[in-house]
Design a protein around this nucleic acid. Structure first.
Length: 780
DNA sequence: CAGTGAGCGAGCTTCCGCTTGACTT
């Protein structure tokens, strides 16, 4: 390694690419993101001493850091090439600290595009670490820790253990809670909209239909009826034909957020799935980096795109465009998400990867294509009975431009009556038109739609909350905490009136439609609403939609060297901490308690509230003076909520646990537990199937389930050391050892059937396997 | 596709932002 230079980047795939560009005098390796951070345990900030963070090398990075140290020791020169943003600057600074480099002298290089020219240019022009930018990152990190680790314990005390709050997740939950309330409180207004179909004779004796609409709307059916009455026998004619040119412009290339939105709309992917697939494409070298907030393309990419478009579609389809990023918070450390090699349209990957790649390819190519030119035609139609004018709108494409490749979808459901992009039959001004029928249809105003994962990401980005690397994990977190659920819900039937004028006759019919049906939308849970209301009431500032934008401005001041970071934090923390203390002292426990009515049997009050293990209903209240007076409890079903459950529904819940009968001399009891409905029999438990109703299931059905479970257990038993109370069982991940409540892993390559008692005891002695941690950020 | 089934007595939970890998109890 003597005479060689070491370059450290953040992503290993990037390291691989850069390695190809630089000669053998360079060794390119990666830090895999941050290498040091605050430990999980405790606040780990010395608040009294200038908020000094107590950084640690993360457990899973120790091995990596040791390797980096070794490489650094042997290198002549070290270039810190982490991303050109706040976090990247901090990573370089942490690298200095673990590699014993002087941050004032270390060589820091940056580039926003991974091309040979950009990399070589960067290596030839190193700078020093920007300590102001590092301090802005430290302020960000410390503030997030203080908010998260002081707010969460307040929730443990006042609401329920293990809950969490934070600058980003709590605002995400607030958006969903408030949108849900808007939807529930929305007053739908009915209006009658008028449309008409005319018959137009075309050359050759054929006829075409011209569809037109009136701008006049009626709030009452009788007014709509009067309008139609008035037009009985009317003669309609073309009043005017107006033609206007119009154009459409392509969208900017993908950022993380817009990719997540379009993959959701066009492919139905969750944001997590989109990111996983994009990661695969990135690692295989098919696309550029997928966590980016930038819409810009490298000069190299622009040139390749020009060649590709001209060759595929012709010169007039190409238009060079460089997009500026609208988002004020963008840090633009990378390019937009684009194909690495634009001439590759077909790549050899899995189907989902292919579909996402195609989307990226088309979006990128379209972004460098010419506007689509359209001609919009508006035909106005008058009549001899009133002054109302109907109009028919049509659109024809004069020049396809980028539409040849790509159209962006919108979140709004397309109106089925939308007349856009239709060709209108040929008519002349003054020409009479034959009315086939005219209808006045009752339509209802709609509330703002509930959020999908992707539209929530869009909203968060607009508010400047969260980063490309955290959108998907944030959405997972709020669901994991039980604040939010993603599900589909059935709609309800709604009646609407349709009045039809046909052949001088008016008919009124009542039709039904389904309204309010939702597909994979985000809904708040009881605990989500409860926690949100508590936080909004007591920590209004932090839950404010503008909070992040406000502190980002202060971080910018730090980055510009105008403000000392610990002073900024002090200004935030002093009032925040005193609010925390005051809330802990004064705020009442939040249970969302709601009185449903009285128990018909005993006359005692029945309430719904949040308990330690979730939403529940309760009959009677505990009495300190009377030990014998214990309330009865029952958990709510997953589909029920504290805010909407009725007394009758609550009383149903108390029918469990239910003794169905006897089997082998023991009671067969049915109840609903933490994991859903189950049968308890002879101190064993059997889960009910989806189709079994715990309130009505019969004894023979229960017995069947018990027998089935016994058989499954017998099949799962590989070895039984009854004397020691140890069993070897067949599990989901292969065989494992079970003793009492503990499970033990069997080493790879060991034949479970042939294990001796001695071998098993050896494993048991070594202790049970550690509990499963979360997917990201493994616990020790 | 195994296991879990309570209603605080113990200790623990928790943030946001960078990154990918190991093969689960």
């Amino acid at each position: 390694m003597a005479g060689k230079s070491l370059i450290i980047v953040e992503s290993p795939s990037k390291a691989k690419t850069i390695n190809k560009y630089l000669g053998s005098n360079f060794v390119v390796t990666s830090s895999y993101g941050h290498i040091r951070d605050l430990p999980d345990k405790g606040v780990a900030i010395d608040i009294e001493n200038g908020y000094t963070p107590q950084y640690e090398i993360s457990e899973d990075k120790k091995k990596l850091v040791a390797e980096l140290k070794k490489l650094a020791k042997d290198a002549d020169d070290i270039y810190l090439a982490t991303d050109e943003d706040r976090e990247g600057e901090a990573i370089s600074w942490h690298l200095c600290s673990v590699l014993n480099l002087d941050p004032k002298k270390a060589k820091r290089i940056t580039y926003t595009e991974v091309t040979e020219k950009a990399i070589k240019n960067a290596v030839n022009n190193p700078r020093f670490i920007n300590l102001d930018l590092v301090n802005a990152q430290q302020a960000r990190r410390v503030l997030d820790r203080l908010v998260g680790y002081e707010l969460s314990p307040v929730l443990w005390k006042k609401v329920k253990p293990s809950l969490s709050a934070g600058r980003v997740q709590s605002v995400a939950v607030r958006l969903i809670v408030e949108r849900e309330r808007d939807v529930k409180n929305f007053n739908s207004v009915a209006t009658f909209k008028v449309s008409a179909n005319f018959i137009v004779s075309e050359e050759g004796g054929r006829t075409a239909v011209l569809k037109a609409e009136s701008n006049t709307k009626f709030s009452k059916e009788q007014d709509a009826l009067a309008y139609l009455e008035q037009l009985k026998g009317a003669i309609f004619s073309v009043k005017d034909i107006e033609k206007k040119p119009a154009k459409r412009t392509p969208s900017a290339p993908f950022t993380t957020s817009t990719l997540q939105q379009e993959a959701s709309r066009k492919l139905g992917f969750s944001v997590l799935r989109t990111m996983r697939i994009a990661q695969n494409l990135y690692e295989a070298g098919h696309i550029t980096y997928m966590r980016t907030d930038s819409t810009s393309l490298s000069d190299l990419a622009l040139a390749d795109l020009a060649t590709e478009i001209k060759q595929r579609y012709g010169d007039k389809f190409h238009k060079r465009r460089q997009y500026t990023t609208k988002n004020e918070n963008a840090q633009e450390a990378h390019e937009a998400i684009r194909p690495s090699v634009v001439s590759n349209f077909d790549i050899d990957v899995e189907r989902d990867e292919q579909r996402l790649y195609e989307l990226i390819w088309k979006r990128t190519v379209a972004s460098q294509m010419n506007d689509a030119e359209l001609e919009r035609t508006i035909i106005s139609i008058k009549n001899d009975k009133n002054t109302d004018v109907l109009s028919a709108t049509g659109e024809v494409i004069v020049f396809e431009g980028f539409l040849k490749v790509y159209t962006e979808d919108t979140d709004e459901e397309a109106d089925a009556d939308d007349a856009a992009s239709t060709l209108l039959p040929p008519v002349k001004v003054g020409q009479d038109l034959n009315l086939r029928e005219m209808t006045a249809t009752e339509r209802f105003s709609k509330p703002q739609p509930r959020y999908t994962e992707a539209s929530l990401v869009k909203k968060l980005e607009e508010l400047g909350i969260g980063r490309p690397s955290t959108y998907a994990p944030t959405i997972t977190t709020v669901q994991q905490r039980g604040y939010v659920v993603k599900e589909s819900r059935d709609g309800v039937e709604r009646k609407f009136r349709v009045l039809t004028l046909k052949e001088n006759n008016i008919d009124g019919v009542t039709k039904t439609e389904i309204t309010g049906a939702e597909k994979m939308k985000l809904f708040p849970t009881d605990i989500g609403s409860l926690v949100n209301d508590f936080l909004v009431e007591n920590f209004k500032d932090i839950l404010d939609y503008g909070f992040t934008a406000g502190i980002e401005e202060q971080f910018d001041e730090i980055a510009r060297g105008k403000v000392e970071w610990s002073k900024m934090i002090d200004g935030f923390y002093k009032p925040f901490h005193s609010t925390v203390q005051q809330t802990e002292k004064e705020a009442k426990r939040v249970t969302g308690e709601r009185l449903l009515g009285d128990d018909p049997a005993t006359g005692e009050p029945v309430i719904a509230r949040m308990g330690k293990f979730g939403a529940m209903v309760q009959i009677g209240k505990a009495d300190e003076n009377d030990e014998s007076k214990k309330p009865r409890f029952a958990s709510l079903r997953a589909t029920q909520s504290i805010e909407t459950i009725t007394l009758d529904e609550a009383m149903e819940l108390f029918k469990l646990p239910r003794v169905v009968g006897e089997f082998e001399g023991k009671d067969v009891k049915v109840s609903i537990g933490r994991f859903g409905p189950y049968i308890a029999h002879n101190s064993k438990f059997v889960s009910l199937k989806k189709e079994n109703d715990p309130y009505t299931i019969a004894l023979d059905e229960c017995v069947e389930l018990i027998k089935a479970k016994r058989e499954a257990e017998a099949n799962a038993l590989i070895q039984d050391f009854a004397a020691e109370g140890i069993q070897i069982l067949k599990g989901r991940f292969g065989p494992y050892i079970k003793k009492g409540k503990d499970n033990y892993k069997i080493p790879k390559g060991t034949e479970a059937e042939l294990m001796t008692l001695e071998e098993v005891l050896e494993i048991v002695k070594a202790g049970p396997a550690p509990k499963k941690g979360s997917r990201f950020g493994k616990k020790k």
